[in-house]
Design a protein around this nucleic acid. Structure first.
Lengths: 128, 128
DNA sequence: CGCTAGCGTTTGCATTTGCAAGCACTTAGG
DNA sequence: CCTAAGTGCTTGCAAATGCAAACGCTAGCG
């Protein structure tokens, strides 16, 4: 199960808030979140939704991505994974163009022999 | 007042699922999400939590960041900017290979006429 | 025809989010 | 003393999430 690290997230938020020298209610107001709920989030009692997380990030004036990394949602990605997912999700391209680019990219990887996973748009693999 | 683009997110998920040639139930199983709920998410009827979003990203084998960008949560670089920066910073490719890929990508963009129209903004919200 | 297996969707309900109102405590001042 | 303003925390409760169990539909096969 890809659980979210709520306690780590909460203490991180509280830490950031302390460093910004904001009270709980100040941050709650800036983030447009109720102060009781923010209190519970900071203590790891609640699992905030994506939207609340985003608002808290705004209130703290930090990037939402930072918060998501702390929450264990985003992880560091290899350059290879970044490229493939970026191409696969680029909606300015047609499906054929995406496939072509991915094949070329995979060919380059194979050419270099520096590949970890060879995804040539194969079948959906079974879960782990 | 929801700061999250649920309909855009839903259609993006369905698009990615179609391109992966997975059925709704296949993705639901891979993502460990119930198929009715996935159906509702894809149609923009529900606003999935951060954890569910993360699981769907895993099921689709794309980065969670991509999904969050589609949901309007994370800072949006435009689609083409994501691809170009991803390619340009991929150290598993040689410089010549990077240049080749970037040229092909630019050619596809020119072919589509969708040169650079979408989002160059850095502020993800305040609409509707 | 009936049976099975697949697809996506609808419905009812347990669980959870997220908030308004109020609690207990501390500090300052009239 | 005791009112006011600050801190964070606890308590019900509306609203939403997310799922199990259905539904209707299509296609293949004995």
């Amino acid at each position: 199960m890809a659980g979210i690290d709520v306690s780590g997230l909460g203490s991180f938020i509280r830490d950031q808030r302390d460093q910004a020298q904001m009270s709980l209610r100040q941050l709650a107001k800036a983030a447009e979140v109720s102060n009781p709920y923010l209190s519970q989030v900071e203590r790891g009692l609640r699992k905030p939704s994506a939207e609340i997380l985003n608002r808290i990030a705004q209130g703290l004036r930090i990037s939402a991505e930072t918060l998501y990394v702390q929450a264990g949602i985003l992880s560091d990605r290899s350059g290879e994974e970044i490229v493939t997912t970026a191409i696969a999700s680029d909606r300015t391209l047609t499906e054929r163009q995406r496939t072509t680019l991915l094949q070329i990219y995979a060919a380059f990887q194979a050419e270099n022999g520096a590949s970890s996973q060879s995804n040539t748009q194969t079948k959906p693999q079974e879960n782990e």
